[in-house]
Simulated assay, not measured.
Amino acid sequence: MSETAEVKELCAVIEECARMLDVPFARPRVSSVLNAYEDAFGHAATVVAFRVATGVRHVGELDCRFTTHPDDRDPYASALAKGLTPETDHPVGDLLSDVQARCPIDSHGIDFGLVGGFKKVYAFFTPDDLQDLSKLTAMPAMPRALADNAGFLARHGLDDRVGVIGIDYRSRTVNVYFNEVPDACFEPETIRSTLREIGTAEPSERMLRLGRESFGLYVTLSWDSPEIERICFAVTTTDLATLPVRIEPEIERFVKSVPFGGDDRKFVYGVALAPEGEYYKLESHYRWKPGAMDFI
């Protein structure tokens, strides 16, 4: 299959990143995803980012995520048509259609792993039109867990702050991202009480220092449990030295290995908390533009 110049360039960048990070690189797997959305990479507004994370289940993987254009395309339908993900009768296969039918979507995003292949589709809402939880909980395909936890989220002032929905087709989970989060949510005592309420492990002092600098957060839900599976806090910076914590050696290696386009570099550093403990992730933008939504 012929490839555009933009796809060839990005594939070469990904291959070089994989080599430097000792992550297996299978060109057919990577190019199949990039070719499915090839028209995105010639668009000036397209954001491209790479991500690594600590924790056993993330070892040996490098994620790539990018926004798609034109915005009126159904990215999940494209993934099905290109054989990137199998057809399913699970509600996860209907959720994007529910969101598209009920919410004004500004743009979409795709997430895939060099090892795991196609993973997620993101639906981004405009920053000046954040969505209400009530609209999302009414969707037939949405996990019941969101409605079960709507009261908890409302108590923290998040009921009308939804900026992004991330649908993970491989793990069959949903991330609900909140923007313009009240400052009180990032205070150490609030973080502690929040995590106790949802049953995660106690936060480390390191996590609390990072939490105070956060710009947003998201929760992970599934169709298999009424509980919030994970909560993630994230900070953004163009200089990792300004973070209130020292980054992990494996993440520092990633930073030194991954290239970036343009004059400025941008990072999103996050800490995710689950019942089994906390882990860290770093997203490095290869292409970005001011005002673009972050994947976190």
Rank of each mutant, 00 (worst) to 15 (best):
K82F: 03
L84V: 00
A40F: 04
A44W: 12
T85F: 10
T88F: 06
H43T: 15
A36D: 01
V56S: 14
D89P: 00
P75H: 07
S78A: 11
D39T: 12
R65V: 03
F50G: 05
T46C: 14
A81E: 06
T68E: 03
A77E: 13
D71S: 13
R51N: 08
A26G: 11
T54L: 11
A77L: 10
R57D: 09
V52Q: 13
G55E: 10
T67G: 14
K82G: 00
N35K: 11
A36Y: 05
P75L: 01
V47E: 15
P75T: 03
H58Q: 09
G55R: 09
T54S: 12
T68W: 04
A44G: 10
S78G: 01
A36I: 01
G60L: 07
R29W: 04
A81G: 02
F41K: 09
F41M: 04
L80M: 03
S31H: 03
L34P: 09
C64H: 01
V52G: 13
L80E: 03
H58G: 07
T46R: 06
T46W: 07
D72V: 04
A77H: 03
P91T: 02
A53I: 06
P86Y: 00
H43Q: 15
R73F: 05
C64W: 00
L80P: 00
V59K: 15
T88E: 04
G83A: 01
E87Q: 09
Y37P: 12
S31D: 07
A26D: 14
R73V: 09
D63V: 00
S78I: 14
V47A: 13
E61Y: 11
V30C: 14
F50Q: 09
F50V: 10
K82Q: 02
A79T: 03
H43S: 15
G83L: 01
V59I: 05
H58T: 02
D39V: 08
F41S: 10
H69F: 15
R73G: 01
A26I: 01
V59R: 15
C64T: 11
R29Q: 12
T85E: 02
R51S: 08
D74A: 05
A45N: 14
P70D: 06
E87M: 08
D72I: 05
N35E: 02
A49P: 06
T46K: 05
T67C: 06
L34M: 03
K82A: 04
K82V: 00
T54D: 14
R51E: 13
A77T: 02
D39K: 14
S32R: 13
A40K: 08
A79V: 00
A45I: 07
A36E: 07
V48P: 15
V56R: 13
Y37C: 06
E87L: 01
G55I: 12
H58F: 10
S32K: 14
A49M: 11
R73C: 01
A45H: 13
A53C: 11
R73T: 07
A53Q: 09
P75C: 08
P28D: 07
T46M: 13
V33F: 04
E87H: 06
Y37R: 10
D39A: 14
E38K: 12
T67Y: 04
R29N: 11
H43D: 15
L80Q: 00
R27Q: 15
A79E: 03
P70N: 06
V52P: 07
N35P: 00
